[in-house]
Every structure is written in C-alpha cells, then in structure tokens.
Design a binder for these strands. Structure first.
Lengths: 358, 358
DNA sequence: ATGAAAGCGCTAACAA
DNA sequence: TTGTTAGCGCTTTCAT
C-alpha cells in the first residue's frame, strides 16, 4: 500500500481557493471569517480528510494541551479508577493525557524529563516524588505539577492527599471503642510519609486512650498474598493481635482470608480488620470489609482545578489540599452503638469536606 | 513567579559556541560529531536546562513516537493490567502512550480523530471498534491500528483476540464432563462478537455431547452487582441452572456470592461457576474461582510486534492473531479425573500458544 | 474578511 | 566534522 503524502492546510487552501490563513481561521473558534468561506474550507477539508496538525500548532502556540501523568502504583485498584477519571475529565477540558509508568521511584526523573520534551502543559504525579532538581525544572518553565496522594518537600508542586493523621486517629478510636486491645499495623512502603504519619497517629491515639496498645507494626507488605502471609507471622507470635489495620484493601482482604480460612478465626469477633481505599472488592459480600474511604472524585476535581488554574496563571502559588477520609463500617469490625454501618449503595462522594492547608 | 523564555537549541549553540546543527547532532544517536564538541554541547545544555522539543522534531521527522491507546473497558481488571504493560513495554521501545478513554462506543471516532491530530504513529484500540470511515483514514495515512480483544470487519487493522470458539468448546466439555446438565450463560454487551461466538460454541458443543443443555443465556450484565442480581433471576425460574458461565471474573464473583450468600447454595456441588480473565481476585481463597486464562503478556507482545513492524514497513498487511486460552481449574467446579487443578503460583504465561489466522 | 509574510524549534541536505 | 540553508505545518501580525 502506498502511503499518501500528508494533507496539510495548504492542500485544503488550494482546493477551497483560499489562503492558508483562512483554513486556519476556519478551524479556530471565534476567528473572524465569513460563514461562506468557512463552509467552503470545511468541505474541502472533509473531502481531503484533513486534520490540523497539533504538533505544528503547539509549536507556534507554545502549548500542547498535553498533560503528563506519571503512575507509580497500579496494584491498588484505587489508582486505576483515578486514572480513568483523570483521563475523562481532562479530555472534557480539552487536554490529552500522556501516560508514563514508573516502576522504581528512581525512574521518576527520567520520566519527567521525557514529559518536558513532549512539552506537556502540566503534570500529575501519582504516588511518587520527583527530585528537587527536576521539580525545579518544571517550575522554571512554568509547568505546574500536582502530586496525587503524596507529599514532598518544597518542589513547588501542588499536592492533594488524604489527611492521614486524622484517619489514624479515627481508626484508633473506632478500634478502641469496639473493644479491640491488641492492634497490629500493616503498611506498604516504609518510607512513604503518609504511612508513617498514619502509624504515628494510631499509636499516639491508642496510647492516649489508655486502653489497649499497638503490639506490632509491619511495613513493606503489598497486596493480597503478602497480607495473607502476614497473618501467619502475626498469629505465630506469643502476643496475637485482636485487630489488624492495613494500608490497602487488597492487603486487608489477604489478611481476612488468612485469618478466616487459614486460621479459622472469627472475624470480627476474635479479630477486627480495617482496610484502606474502599476498593470495589471491599464491598463484595464475601469480604464485607470495614475500610477507609477517600473522596476520590473530589480529589481528582481539585487536582484538575489547581493544575489548570496554575496553568492559566503561572503566578499562582502551589497549594496543599487535604481530603477528609471517612471510615466505612462493614462486617470486619464489631459494631458499636453510634456507628452507622454501610448498607448504602456505593457512592464514594458522600460526607466529605476538604481542608485547605497553608 | 516569572516564567523564563523557553531555552532552545539556539541558546545552547550560542553558549557552546557552535551551530544549531551541532546541538542537534549532539542529541542524535550516531550522528557524526566529535567527542569534544558533543561534550561541550551537552554541558551547555545541562547548564541551561535544555531539553529538545519533541514537537518540533516530530514536525520535521514526520514521526511523533506517540502511540494512541483507546480504552473502552475499565471495569475488567484485565484491561488495566494490560494498559500498564503496554505503557511499560512501549516506553522501552521508545514510544509514549497517549491515553484516551471512551465511554460509549460512538465516541471511538471522535477519539481517533484527535489521535490523528496528535500525529500518533500508531493506535491500539482496546475492546472497541472504529468505524470503517475513520479506520480508513488511518490506512490512508499509513498509521497502523491494532484491535485488542475485538475483531472487526475489514478496516485494515490488525487484531489480537482470544479464540472464543475454542474457549466455548472447552468450557462446554469441562462442564458436561463434570456432570453439570443445566447450563446458564451470562455475558456482557450483547453485540460483541466474541461473546456471541463463545455462546454459540458452548450451545453447539453441549448439544453435540447429548448430555445436558443450555437453559438460559443472559446478556448485558456487567460487574459484581449485576452478577449477583442475575442469580436471583436465574434461581427464581422453574428450571434452575446447575452451572453458570460468565464472561468476566467480576460477574462470576458476583454470581458466586449471590449463590452462596443469598441462596446458601453449595458451590461447586450444587452449582458450578466459571469466570473469564483470571483476575487477581479469582485466585483469592474466598473465591477460588475456576476461570479462563488468556496469555495476556503474549497478546501484548504480539500487539506491539505487529504494530511496530507495520510502522516500519507500511506495506505489511494487517494480521489477525488468535490466542489460545486455558481453563484454570479451581474450586467453583467439581473435580474431574484428568483435570489439573491450579495450586501453582499466579503465572499468566504458561502453556499457551498462538495460532495464526489468515 | 482575507492574504502575505514571518517564525515557532527543530533536522536534513548540501557545502565547506 | 561542521556550518549554512531550507522547510516541516501551523498561527499570527499587518496590510489590504
């Protein structure tokens, strides 16, 4: 098959008998062009199968309408839901997503460098941190960055995160109120700030209540299998926990299966389990997992808002937004009076509010 | 904050005291340039924070190194796993992904038009079909398309799909052999060809075996909740099924929970259930779902291979590749002699081979 | 409302 | 090996 030469605005202009400027104007909202010529141009364009070349346009307009999104975590279903929403919502606003995956945290920089080369108008970094140096490059170039679910030192990026300390306090309170006394903590990457904060908050709150204590704190545990295996460790100890708090629903489900199936433990009577993220599977009848729900859609909307506003006005300062998470009470924790257990339909957007930090 | 002007090859050239061509050459693998000037250029570039502008480069090179990926289905975890792999593997080969989400099948065309404007070098369309007209535009422009998990009429696109008929035959055989006699079928979108084919194959095979029959065939059922609800319909019928075949694991898990929890049915003794896709959750001990496993990674590799090869040589004809799926025997079907049940680690890439069709 | 000309930042011939 | 020149396909003053 022979590949035709590209059809350009010149071809369309020739066919329509107008100048290239007119072709350009025909494809620009609100440009001063007569109905008549516009129609002629559009017809010619259609006939030739012409599509304006965004590359050339970007070159001269100095904006690509491209937003780079860097995904560091795919394991948690939370993030793919998020990715999809970013994709849809940004497209509605006229932006396209260029997607980059990083496996090791170290890749972030080279990834960002590529985004720079593609002249992205902005970047969303999910669950990872750029170096100060590369972050600085973005600032210098006036390209806004939003950090999603991760906070970093002063790289001049906006960030949208859950309020981990508050979550920690809530969890601790709930567990103690429900009569759990020997609490174990399981989290993912031990270096991630949010995990550290949550851990601290739980430990502190439990201690303050003077009832029960945190008897174990495991880190670097990811996903179902690791969660299930962790139960083994925990239960073979002399001091067995009567509650386990996980930093992801997948891990929590692993723990749940480990407890119920491998050890025949009665959840929630003998053992309470709390997850994080309210993944679809948390709702499944077989799991019915008590968990923490983040107002994902609001977080996404806010990310987009802060990104685009900084894009329009580069003088705006980056902001740190914190989302209030709620606990969703289901069947893996004992019921306490004033809790409202979740029999409602899945609606990730209820009862949330945002705090503005600094 | 003041936004600096863009730094271009001209700036670098000035600082390094060379021509812009030399700057270009310094950033091109294997260009004829002396070690000395290259080093000088790179140093100057680094000092200024210069990154080559891919837009400008693409304009002149007539290739963007951009691959468009159109996602029509996010519900099935299968697809996000796939997206991630495409992202990683294509990046290794020097391509970036521009991600587009479509909700309604009708959006596909406008989406593809945008990809055209972004001058993508190729496109991967996941679980959706472009119109003949737009597909034709891609052909005309010599831009290869790969259809992933969907086959279409002659739009000149390559396609990579599972062999649905073979899957249907296998499933039917397995069920009949295990003594199931009243089989119900549940699938997603009723217009999707692969679902139709699989349904046909099951019906035909069951009939040929002269044991049992397909007593129901439901369509347009997606996800956990719909699956769980479907059990209600099925079980309130006079003729209850003793086996249910689902076109997705999520649906199957919904069915499983519906059967066990809502109806107290003994799975697999009273009711056999088979899913599709071998999602991570299928392996969970609580589900332990018998399902169909596609060789995802091979399918992805093949997609990339056929895409890139056609990109290099536009004269290559598009191909249709069919992947052989295997059944993974777990706990939701009765055990039959020669089955090997799955106690192994999760490895989606075993025991598969590809057939070349036409 | 329209066209001519200039130029976005880069690479590819061609000379030197 | 290096620099000069031209031009990728578009938008945008500036005239008309």
């Amino acid at each position: 098959m022979k590949r035709k030469d590209r059809v350009t605005s010149r071809d369309v202009a020739a066919l329509a008998g107008v100048s290239r400027s007119s072709v350009s104007r025909a494809f620009t909202q609100g440009a001063s062009i007569s109905k008549k010529t516009k129609k002629r141009v559009l017809k010619a364009a259609d006939k030739l199968g012409y599509e304006p070349n965004v590359m050339a346009r970007s070159l001269i307009m100095r904006r690509s309408n491209l937003i780079g999104i860097v995904m560091a975590d795919w394991v948690n279903p939370f993030y793919t839901i998020m990715l999809r929403q970013f994709s849809e919502k940004l497209r509605e606003r006229g932006y396209q997503l260029i997607l980059m995956t990083v496996n090791v945290e170290d890749d972030v920089d080279s990834t960002l460098r590529q985004l720079l080369q593609y002249q992205v108008d902005g970047a969303i970094i999910v669950s990872a941190l750029p170096s100060l140096r590369l972050g600085g490059q973005f600032i210098d170039k006036g390209i806004p960055i939003v950090l999603f679910n991760r906070q970093g030192p002063g790289i001049g990026a906006s960030s949208v995160t859950g309020d981990e300390s508050a979550v920690g306090r809530k969890i601790a309170t709930v567990l103690v109120d429900a009569g759990y006394r020997r609490i174990a903590l399981i989290r993912g990457n031990r270096t991630v700030l949010s995990g550290i904060r949550k851990t601290e908050a739980i430990v502190k709150t439990v201690k303050a209540r003077k009832k029960g204590k945190v008897i174990a704190s495991l880190a670097d545990i990811f996903g179902y299998d690791a969660g299930r295996a962790a139960v083994l460790d925990l239960m073979n100890n002399k001091s067995k926990p009567d509650a386990i708090v996980c930093s992801s629903d997948l891990t929590a489900i692993g723990v749940l299966d480990g407890a119920r199936i491998d050890f025949g433990i009665d959840v929630p009577e003998e053992l309470g389990i709390i997850g994080f993220g309210d993944a679809p599977a948390a709702r499944w009848a077989s799991n019915n997992l008590t968990t923490v729900r983040l107002p994902v859609e609001e977080m996404i909307d806010l990310s987009i808002e802060t990104l685009l506003s900084r894009l329009q006005d580069p003088n705006l300062e980056p902001v740190s937004l914190t989302a209030n998470a709620n606990i969703v009470f289901r069947g893996t924790t004992r019921i306490v009076e004033e809790q409202v257990s979740d029999q409602s339909k899945y609606d990730p957007l209820k009862n949330h509010s945002f705090e503005f930090v600094e």
